[in-house]
Design a protein around this nucleic acid. Sequence first.
DNA 1: TCTGTAGGCGTTTTT
DNA 2: CGCCTACAGA
Length: 747
Amino acid sequence: MGSFDGIFDGLNEGQHQAVATTEGPLLVLAGAGSGKTRVLTHRIAHLIGGCGIPPESILAVTFTNKAAGEMRERIEKLLGPVAEGLWVGTFHSTCVRILRRDIGQIGRSRGFVIYDDSDSLAVIKEVLRRHDLDPKTHDPRGLRWRIDQWKNQGVLPARAVEEAGDLDDELSAELYVTYQRLLADANALDFGDLLLLTVELFRHYPEVLAHYQRRWQYVLVDEYQDTNRVQYQLVRMLAAQHENLCVVGDPDQSVYGWRGADIRNIMAFEHDYENAKVVKLEQNYRSTQPILSGASAVVSNNQGRRDKEMFTERTDGAVIRRYEAYDDRDEAQYVVRQILEGARGGDQAYGDYAILYRTNAQSRGFEEELLKYDIPYVVVGGVRFYDRAEIKDVLGYLRLVVNPQDDQALRRVVNRPARGIGKTTVDRAQQLAQQQGVPMLEALGRLVDSGQAGRSAKRVVAFLELMSGLAREVPSRRVDEAIALVLDRSGYLAALAKEATPEAEARHENLKELLTSAEDFHAVNALSPDEERGELEVFLDQVALISDLDSYEQREERVSLLTAHSAKGLEFERVFMTGMEEGIFPHGNSSRSEEGLEEERRLCYVGMTRAMNHLTLCWATERRRYGERSYQTASRFLDEIPSEFVEVIQSDAAPRQSFGGGGGRGAAQGGGFDEYAQDEVSIDYSFNQEGPDEITVRKGMRVRHPVFGVGTVGAVVGNGLDQKLRIKFDRVGIKTVMLRYANLEPA
DNA sequence: TCTGTAGGCGTTTTT
DNA sequence: CGCCTACAGA
């Protein structure tokens, strides 16, 4: 096999073999930092450029849009635009694509919408209501979790009912039936459905499956250790004929068991595919010896591991630091000071640093500390941009236009902004809808026609007119125009402007950001529009499937804050792993079972191996949890690192007298005084957007606000993230604006 | 119908 | 501690 344009240049033996083995089943066991993306991209480039395989015959599946995007980019770099017809996508987006074409076969409409977490939770609550169950005794999130598990396992409602083991299960299964019916009525699919229904489609319609089998002669799967049962089945079906299947993964980085991922999928690959070849990539190109050895030592405590011995040629390097903080504040201070020192020394950029933690809630303390020193940062994960209330409101209108059956969207938008259509009216509409078997939007109309709308009839008519107006105009517009139209016609923007609170200001900012991203979307989409589906539909699909992580980009000028889970696949020059305490990492909910604990340990391995040159592990003897003081012990994982790789640093911080608010109300006075004591604060916008950048605002200073005009700064209220400024504006009087969002400039 | 407040509850990780 | 929900009052 000849090399093509240096596709094989610079690959080590294992990588070379993985790239060159194009036919038949192949398992690539790729340890952390072993160049697995390189293997995948070069393999695809080799298939196309070297073997002459048409790009449209290749399917590459990843878990995140970000990974998919990066892969495509790197392939295009290797091959140029030849890669056009190549399909690189997530499991979910791939399934959407299949279902948009063929879901009609299993009796569903191709115009379905995708329900996200909060939509599906709302449906769950509706299910409980219909079964006369109290959400207090029947936890909606628990039920959703149970249903999700079923879907991950490939279990349809009927089978769940059949196989229910006890009364509890039986009830859950019945609720699953109702849930699924409600989704169908709304012409909606949840995340789990995308995978589950695709597998069902393939199972019952072999000719449909055959179509995709013929089309995708070569299938590649990234992060195979994270596949769940349905994903496993899907891959298996697609590859069944040709078995040109290459899966890449690392059992030591399997950290999504709670989401249904089954580590056995990767462990049993050779059993599943008889002629499978196995390639191990054991050279780590990322980390120094102490980091790699420390991380390997931790994960080697897991039982039943697949043997893998990682090595690095970077045998020098600083030892791992272990910092023992007095409390969580001390921990945050230490980390931020280290960052400050590194950056002031001039050698490090802020972007070289990542602060990792186990749970999103832990970010807050670090954010406040970073804010104090004006250090730019980005928090990855947590609340999705598209999950913010105002964004979902606006998208709700668009969803309802695209799919008038979308009851969740209707419930969301019908009274936002407040237009006097309250609970009573909505409940009536809901009842009528249920009785007559029509969507709620339709039911609203019938309510008016039959004179049952009472006092709110007029307002309901106005709403229906608004919706039909939008339905008429939106389809012919660009997405960004459609959004602008909704904002205007619905009175949403006007209501926000009238509110004139810092929160409203923040929401307005987010909506502007939405408009910008819609413009960007249009610009890209216009280049290769989908022939069958409108721009808006494609936009809504994308929005439903995008995660916060997907839009994250590492930038030189800002520190990254993220969970260990989110950090998977990334690398940083310097990493702080924080909250390394029993109960947090390993997390209390996972430490009870041995499998849970092993997954935590793998997660620890993932976190540690993100570091290229410097790794610091922090823990605190005391920590505020649920607002209460809790005494912590060091994570067992810390003691699993051989001491030769570790330097222990003790905090010299003096124990503080009290914890912020302490136990009693009396402390609030102190806090209150403190809040108003500040008279100078500087604002750094750079973590939020590009652009200019930092100004210092002083009490008495004249500033210009983009909406309220010129004014004089009064007081600075609050601290940290919630910091607000009270400003007396010349035109509109005293307003409080939120520091983070008010785009102030000196006047 | 809307707004304010008190109480309860929770936090694991996310496509 | 902070968010969300349920409920009471206007």
